[in-house]
Amino acid sequence: MVDKAKLTPEEYLATILVPEKGRETGHVCWDCKHLKPVLKGSKFPPADLIGWCTMIHWPFYWCITDFNVVKKCYAMEKGIYTPKKF
């Protein structure tokens, strides 16, 4: 268990919203604050999504599949959405 007193609100949020997949998928999205990942243990939606991009088709969400690896993106903005290994 990490000490939540030392976490920023964003880092804390990342400990609650644990994604199903991670950096091993190779998407740059894992460093992007616009990613809304599929949460761990969700049976729904289908498993070939890593999550949704909340930005490039804003206000709609775009499904990011794990087989279509996003290597670069004009909407990429640094931010914490996934936990770094604590």
């Binding site: 949704w52 088709h57 206000p59 709609f60 969400y61 775009w62 499904c63 599949t65």
Partner: peptide
């Protein structure tokens, strides 16, 4: 929209 682009419509 979803079928063509994989875009999930959101509330507006």
């Amino acid at each position: 929209l979803y079928g063509r682009f994989g875009i999930v419509r959101q509330r507006w």
